[in-house]
Simulated assay, not measured.
Amino acid sequence: MFLSHLIFILSAIGFILFAIRSNRQESFEKYLTFFSFLYFTATGTFLYLSYYSGTTSKFLDLYGVLNESITLLVPVVIVGLFGKKLSFSKTILVFLGVILTGILFTVTHFLIANLDGNDLIFYPSNTRLYYNVFLQLGYNVVLFVLFLSLLKRINFNETSELFDGVYKRVFSVLFIVYYIQDSLFFVGMLFSAKGETLSKGLYYFMLISNLLMAILLIALAVYTNWLFVLNKIKMSWQKISEEERNIEPKVFSFDIKNGLKDVKSWNDFKQVYADEFKEIIVEVEKLDFLSKTEKLYAALQPFDLSHKDIATLLSVSLRTVGTNFYRLRLKLKDNNFSSDFPYNLS
């Protein structure tokens, strides 16, 4: 009971984190928000039926099937839209397509079940339960294979910088776990239809899987929209700490805004400022564990520039700036370097 309530609370937090900043999201991220909503309502429905209601109404039964059909389809849409910018009208059309597909599949389940009275689709009283379960398992497998195929085609090195190694792992594990645990649920239902009790091992595996998914959803929400905010908080804490210790951080306050219009990469920075900021270039070049993008951000960090300034100058989003500085500090820390210029072993 505790785990079920915890999963519901965490899924609610994940959905709220996505929803609050939904106006800043790219096309594929809006469907991440939609997925978080579907998952949140599914955990809420499960919690209600398990602990607060002894019976399932026809409405909740149909909603459960509809929710399942749509939620399974959304990850495929997300990877299909990754890196693509859709207009508002096209985003709505895709959304309507997903909803209509879910409704069509739900109607198909309903027609197959051929229910009498208050019978439910995925319930032992349904005499055609096997047909419904096998149809659902086939739907799961097809969409899972399609998801993996589209995921494999994404060239993460040439697309949005947000999709770095950590984000990719969180994103992939979340949906792979979802497809697997959902399929196992219906396998368990086949055993239940034979009168066999669902094993405790499978039951707890599904609970742990859902807990993991809820945590991964929160992590994904943070990576998608909140890293910039967290970095601002972290930087303010660092400034307070430096003031308390009477340490003057080394800051280059030269106005480089005009020159930076010609700087879009680390190589550009080295060419434009080879003489003027030789000290920075020498220090940053020592950090051979950084990528060229990370070296550019390491070189920009000593300047008195806000994230908004850098986003404008480099023609990238605020979220990209926040993500790159987060990644930079993480790599510096992992390699025992200071996150303040000059970068020295700490």
Rank of each mutant, 00 (worst) to 15 (best):
M1V: 12
M1R: 10
L6E: 08
I7N: 06
L10N: 02
G14Y: 02
F18S: 00
S22I: 11
R24N: 14
K30F: 01
F40K: 00
G44L: 05
T45I: 12
S50D: 14
T56A: 04
K58S: 07
F59G: 06
F59T: 15
D61H: 10
L62D: 02
I70F: 01
V74L: 00
L81M: 10
G83M: 07
S87R: 06
F88R: 12
S89D: 07
S89W: 00
I92A: 01
L93G: 00
F95S: 10
V98E: 04
T101W: 15
I103P: 14
L104K: 07
L104F: 08
T108R: 06
L111T: 13
A113N: 04
A113G: 05
L115A: 08
I121Y: 07
R128C: 01
L129V: 10
Y130A: 04
V133S: 02
Y139N: 13
N140F: 13
N140M: 04
L143K: 11
L146W: 15
R153N: 14
N157L: 08
F163M: 12
R169L: 10
S172D: 02
S172N: 11
L174N: 13
I176H: 00
Y179S: 05
V187D: 06
S192T: 09
S209M: 07
L216Q: 11
L216Y: 03
L217Q: 07
V222C: 06
N231Q: 05
W237K: 13
K250A: 00
G259L: 05
L260G: 01
D262F: 04
K264C: 00
S265P: 15
N267F: 02
N267R: 13
D268Q: 04
K278M: 10
I280F: 00
V282K: 12
K286H: 07
D288H: 14
T293A: 02
K295G: 03
A299P: 15
Q301C: 01
F303H: 07
S306T: 15
S315K: 15
L318N: 14
V321F: 12
V321H: 08
Y326R: 14
L328T: 07
L332G: 06
L332M: 11
D334W: 08
F337P: 02
